[in-house]
Computed example of a mutant assay.
Amino acid sequence: MRRIGIVGYGHLGQYLTQAIQESNDLELAFVWNRTMDLLTQEAKIPSDLVMRDLRQASEYKPDLIVEVSHPSVTFKHGEYFLQVCDFMIGSPTALADPALEAKLKAKALEHGHGLYVPSGALWGGEDIRKMADRGTLKGLCVTMRKHPTSFKIDGQLRALNEQAKDASVTLYHGPVRALCPLAPNNVNTMAAAAIAAHNLGFDGVQGRLISDPSLSDWHVVEVSVEGPEMHGQRFKVDTIRRNPAAIGAVSGSATYASFFSSTLLAHGKGAGVFLC
């Protein structure tokens, strides 16, 4: 039975914790949250499962650590996690930092562990990866449309978002690498796409972020893939994913189950970086 440690106890962390406790194949190793009172008083997590210091993860003997907190956790503790066991990074926007990405890849190879990136709301991630492996992936654009209240952003993007009152506003259109630090909580799907499309990477994959006040019930993710020319025509695939979501929700409802499925898949692939 695999032991899973959960880092972060927001809505997604709570969902995963309960799903693991109800699973016949997984065991909860620990739960960590920045606000300890939420675990000890409100959630009433058993005291032996509450980890107060992320530097003590090895003492709980996890087989997999799942981060669903904030990219800053991976910046500070990601290398250590990969020394301990496999690591699933729920905030893969952190990997847009090339130095961190290189360090984590090196640490995974050094200790024989897997760095797993959940596909989240990305539809067709495995197909994108296969094309990247063959070098036939020529272009990839991921468009995310959400209600203005679903964005956790600052600076110029926040100012643009405030204009989306009566009509949709494009907050950003360009390389995913530059977008990730501007909206680290909202574009993990784009980061997952950049990992899958490894021949294009964070600089080659395009991201388009749209604030749309008409989307009161959905998050919409559009994935546009371009392949090689064949018989004078370019290969193309376009998908549209409509994920039910309440106004103000950062993650759509279907993403929770997707994350748990990724948790089940995040093992057994050896050392390296893997989409799951």
Rank of each mutant, 00 (worst) to 15 (best):
K105L: 13
L160A: 07
G135E: 10
G124E: 05
P92K: 06
T189N: 10
M131S: 03
A191I: 00
A197C: 07
G114L: 09
C180G: 00
R134V: 08
P175R: 06
Y172A: 02
L157D: 04
S168A: 15
K105F: 11
T93Y: 08
A94N: 04
A132V: 05
A197R: 00
A167Y: 12
A99K: 11
G174A: 07
V117W: 03
N185F: 15
L100M: 09
T143N: 07
A167V: 03
P148Y: 12
G114Y: 08
T170D: 03
K107I: 12
S119K: 13
F151P: 00
A194W: 01
L115G: 00
V142A: 07
P181W: 10
A106Q: 15
K103G: 02
H173P: 00
A196Q: 05
D127Q: 14
A193I: 06
A192V: 02
A183W: 08
K107G: 05
Y116A: 00
V187G: 05
D133A: 14
L122Q: 05
Y172C: 01
A102I: 03
S91M: 13
E162R: 11
K152I: 09
R177N: 07
E126R: 15
A183E: 04
T149G: 05
H147I: 02
V117P: 01
H111S: 11
A159N: 13
C141W: 11
T143L: 08
K146H: 13
P92G: 01
D97H: 11
T93N: 08
L179S: 00
A102P: 04
V176T: 04
A132E: 08
G124P: 03
L182P: 01
Q156T: 09
H147C: 02
Y116Q: 03
R145L: 14
L182G: 02
